[in-house]
Design a protein around this nucleic acid. Structure first.
Lengths: 121, 121
DNA sequence: CTAATACTGAACCATATGGTTCAGTATTTC
DNA sequence: GAAATACTGAACCATATGGTTCAGTATTAG
């Protein structure tokens, strides 16, 4: 595992993550699905602007959408970022020393997860 | 920790990682430092082109450079991507189910690290 | 049926990539 | 000192963001 990196996919994922609004959208969708209008309002942006962000997230596989009636609902996509995490972890590894910090981060997040409880699925 | 994300830094890091050439440069520099000429040759690119990539990596803090005489040497920077890993891990967490996969990835990389031994520093 | 809602598309704008070529400048090397 | 080496900067090109406004189209509410 974590042997071959689909570079095109990594390109799209990292590019999608390089914008604060899009990271915010992902965080939002992790809590609950939302329409374009919902997201546009929350991020103080026009519908058209938000639609573009969603397009980029969709192309990267991070978000999927479905239109029912006049409303397009956005949800987190199938892409689980394992490859991206692997790439970063590998960089960490070569970088050597501070690698253990990632363990702590994850342990911490797991502890928090138990307290919060999974909110979707 | 992993509470406040410096969004500008995350923007720059993820953007820097969104290009296959730049990820390749990082992998290269993880093995050994290199001049602009070295890197330009390895990635079949003009000096000027490679210089631009290095500039982006430098602004993101992923690479540092030092010019001695007429040669500019590039090395991995101080930025250790812990925050980026944390963000992705957090997404993983909310995404719930597949989170444990990251543990395996890391365990695997750690095992490999022991075999390889740290190559720098 | 009319009006409001929700999205969509085209067009436009400024800026950033990802690259190039061409013309320098600064350092070695011979 | 002349020539090769290594980088640097400006200028240019195409494409992609990140956003907007404006003008639709399709649905739903009244």
């Amino acid at each position: 595992m974590v042997q071959y990196f689909g570079t095109a996919r990594l390109d799209a994922s990292f590019a999608a993550l390089s914008d604060a609004t899009r990271r915010g959208v992902i965080e939002q969708l992790a809590r609950a699905e939302a329409s374009i209008t919902d997201l546009a309002e929350r991020f103080h942006m026009t519908l058209t602007g938000m639609k573009k962000h969603i397009g980029i997230l969709e192309r990267a596989g991070l978000v999927v959408t479905e239109k029912v009636g006049r409303v397009r609902t956005c949800r987190l996509g199938a892409q689980d970022l394992a490859e991206e995490a692997g790439w970063i972890a590998s960089y960490h590894q070569r970088w050597s020393a501070r690698f253990d910090a990632l363990d702590d981060v994850i342990a911490e997040l797991k502890a928090k997860e138990k307290m919060d409880g999974p909110e979707r699925q």
